[in-house]
Amino acid sequence: MNKAVKKKRKALAAQNDCVACGCCVKVCPFSAIQILKGITARVDQDKCVGCGKCAKECPASIITLEEVAV
């Protein structure tokens, strides 16, 4: 019998449109986001629980919650 694929929601930052303001970093309760070299935000998929706080906060609305298989 096939096991059902578990899916979880994770935050994903559209790195090309990110302004690297760091608003998402401040609200993340798990410190899962960092600003790389002052250019863009990156979400650590292992730490992210998909709460969506960063997506709500992002002034450019470039963070989306995507379903990923785990």
Binding site: V19, A20, G38, E57
Partner: peptide, 20 residues
């Protein structure tokens, strides 16, 4: 829009990102 919408088009923010 959002509270920190200014950060999206702030000239200092754009310039520092460009420098980075």
């Amino acid at each position: 829009f959002k509270p920190r919408s200014w950060c999206v088009y702030c000239p200092m923010g754009t310039m520092t990102q460009l420098i980075c």
